[in-house]
Nucleic acid binder design. Structure first.
Length: 622
RNA sequence: GCGGGCGUAGUUCAGUUGGUUAGAACGCAUCCCUGUCACGGAUGAGGUCGCGGGUUCAAGUCCCGUCGCUCGCGCCA
């Protein structure tokens, strides 16, 4: 017989009755009745109930073994007595009557409970991640992640892509974030960088003639974390040669959509997967106030600056801001007028908490003799109310209704600021309003659906408001729409890039572009952002050189695997979908990382550490 | 770098206006129990109330500082 097991803990059924079997696993739960002891034995596959009664000399010994100890039991498979079967367990019709038992590894008293969710905090869970991972939720989320990655690989190979490995220790590549650096022993004073993305390598593979690349690629960025952002993460990194933007969408939409279809019922709720038409970046920012809008939220934003510019509108607060170049955005909220006063007051308080002067609104309470939903442009179907209504003439109100498509019973919230700020704040208010509405309201967030679409036509450049300096707004590898001619045009801020994102339920899943493979266009593109040829050569010399020896037109994208798994697992925190992660301060309390190197290590690496003044003081005091 | 929230038993939490010996649940230990499946019952151990300072007759509670965790802003695809 096998040293440890003949079956897994999920395998045995009634048909195995009478067999002598061996199982190994963890003591999940013990139920000790004095004369009879039940042990639920667990492995990664499932649970099997094992029994010892007082006829057995083993009882006294086994009683002492604590939960989460690893044991091996040998015994006979017996059908459970009539009425004691457990329909909730796959193996619930049988039990294993223990003849022999070995304690393979005893468990100490546990710092967190494995069999029960005990609400243990993240610091404890991360320190004892190996225990946390035994728990049902983490265990199955890690498996979900593995399955998603496996499915991605299969889908990519099926489409003729091959998986490549690219270096982890490489050169710093300025993609925006800070690099993690690795000191070189052989080259004093020089450092390798961990890749923020394998961007240049995948483009070089295109130059090398491999025309369909993918990689489940680790990426590293030394920027502060968030619930959905860590120092290291994985991307499904993709690049193709001789393709248009549309071909990339046509290739990748079925891959990511297929993943959502395949795993969408994992949380137990079936979700629909809906693809919506491409949206321009400009439309996303205007209509939704975000470059990654959640389209389950039905509220839309429109520009109503014209209304507040009118001579018969007396609202000075907005007029002053408009006079200095500001805009007014209106968030149209169907059927929201009937919400209680407290709903509007709470939103106003929220806006003030966010640093805004408030969140003004107008609501159109239906007049009793007019049926709901009926539109009379003059506004005579309803009674406009709210703090701002009195500043607008009847004509202004009716223009507002026309522009914002307002019906009786609707409400509108206003945001007034410089364009970019107004757009973004209106976007956040749009989400806040939607979330504050009661469940089932016509304007509440839709449930049970993944809404996917591509945002296209990102601007190539943006202007820093303070310095007035023009810089790349996304990454500098994208081809400008219109090529060199566009770059020689009068207004760099009007140039769109062949740059796109894939968005799902408010998360940016993927970012990509058709790359700029022409050195002369790249030179001009960098010049517009104020970088001279020398900078370009220093930063991208390797890739630029390659482009001088025959580079195919190419493009690609990279999907954040963790965000996809977060959506599938319905978890708002990235740390819930990784086996091993660092905490918010990028420390690993289990492994003790980061740690101080030894003197010898520093010497080998030709390094000396200079501690921040604050920490030097602390050391002195200690 | 900045802001919000939190810090009390192994774990999750309660702790009133500052007032006697700081509580509960789960876990742990000992004992009882032959059919449970979150088994049940009895008893018990377990605390520098994050740390330092202050106010007070008296501080888990109030004040100041500091550290840690967490969420967000800045930053970052």
């Amino acid at each position: 017989m096998h040293a440890y097991r003949t079956h897994t803990c999920a395998a045995l059924r009634k048909s195995d009755e009478g067999k002598t079997v061996k199982l190994s696993g963890w003591i999940h739960r013990k139920r000790d009745h004095g004369g009879v002891l039940f042990i639920d034995l667990r492995d990664t596959h499932g649970l099997t109930q094992c029994v010892v009664d007082q006829d057995s000399p083993l009882l006294a010994e086994i009683e002492k073994w604590r939960p989460e100890s690893v044991i091996t039991v040998e015994g006979r498979v017996k059908p459970r007595h009539a009425g004691t079967e457990n329909a909730k367990m796959a193996t619930g019709d049988i039990e294993v009557y223990i003849d022999k038992a070995t304690l393979q590894s005893a468990a100490d008293v546990l710092p967190l409970q494995v069999a029960e969710p005990d609400g243990a905090g993240e610091d404890v869970r991360l320190k004892y991640r190996f225990l946390d991972l035994r728990r049902e939720g983490m265990h199955s989320r890690v498996r979900l992640r593995n399955n998603v990655i496996s499915s991605m690989r299969r889908r990519m190979w099926d489409k003729g892509f091959q998986e490549f490995n690219t270096p982890i220790m490489t050169a710093s590549s300025p993609e925006g974030a800070r690099d993690y650096l690795v000191p070189s022993r052989l080259h004093p004073g020089k450092f390798y960088a961990l890749p923020q993305a394998p961007q240049q390598f995948k483009q070089l593979l295109m130059v090398a003639g491999f025309d369909r690349y993918f990689q489940i690629a680790p990426c590293f960025r030394d920027e502060d974390g968030r619930a959905d952002r860590l120092a290291e993460f994985y991307q499904l990194d993709v690049e193709m040669s001789f393709v248009t933007q549309e071909e990339i969408f046509a290739t990748m939409s079925p891959v990511v959509g297929g993943i959502f279809e395949e795993f969408n019922a994992w949380t137990g709720t079936q979700h629909r997967v809906e693809w919506l038409p491409n949206m321009s970046w400009h439309e996303a920012m205007l209509t939704y106030g975000s470059d990654k809008p959640d389209l389950r939220n039905p509220l839309v934003i429109c520009d109503v600056t014209e209304v507040f510019k009118r001579d018969d509108v007396e609202f000075k607060a907005f007029k002053n801001i408009i006079a200095s170049g500001g805009v007014v955005r209106a968030i149209r909220c169907p059927k929201v007028a009937e919400q209680p006063r407290s709903f509007f007051d709470k939103l106003n308080a929220w806006a003030q908490g966010e640093g805004a002067p408030g969140l003004g609104y107008i609501k159109w309470d239906p007049l009793p003799n007019v049926s709901k939903g009926e539109t009379i442009p003059s506004g005579s179907d309803s009674n406009p109310g709210g703090p701002i209504a009195k500043f607008l003439s009847d004509e202004a109100l009716s223009e507002l209704r026309k522009i914002a498509d307002i019906k009786s019973g609707d409400a509108v919230f206003f945001v007034c600021d410089k364009e970019e700020k107004a757009a973004k704040f209106a976007g956040r208010a749009r989400d806040k309003i939607c979330d504050d509405l009661p469940e089932g309201h016509a304007s509440a967030r839709e449930k049970g659906v993944y809404k996917l679409f591509w945002v296209v036509d990102f601007p190539m450049y943006e202007m820093d408001e303070k310095t007035g300096k023009v810089d790349f707004s996304h990454n500098p590898f994208s081809m400008p729409q219109g090529g060199l001619d566009a770059l020689n045009g009068p207004d760099p801020l009007a140039i769109r890039a062949m740059q796109y994102d894939c968005v799902c339920n408010g998360y940016e899943l993927c970012s990509g572009g058709i790359r700029n493979h022409r050195p002369e266009i790249m030179e001009r593109a960098f010049a517009l952002a104020g970088y001279d040829k020398a900078v370009l050569e220093k930063k991208f010399g390797g890739m630029l050189n390659a482009f001088r020896f025959g580079a195919p037109p190419h493009g690609g994208c990279a999907f954040g695997i963790d965000r996809i798994v977060m959506l599938l697992a319905n978890e708002p925190n990235l740390r819930e979908v990784y086996a091993f992660v660092m905490n918010g301060a990028y420390e690993d309390p289990m492994m003790g990382a980061p740690s101080e190197p030894s003197e010898q290590q520093l010497k080998d690496l030709h390094l000396k550490t200079v501690m921040p003044v604050k920490m030097q003081d602390e050391k002195k005091r200690a």
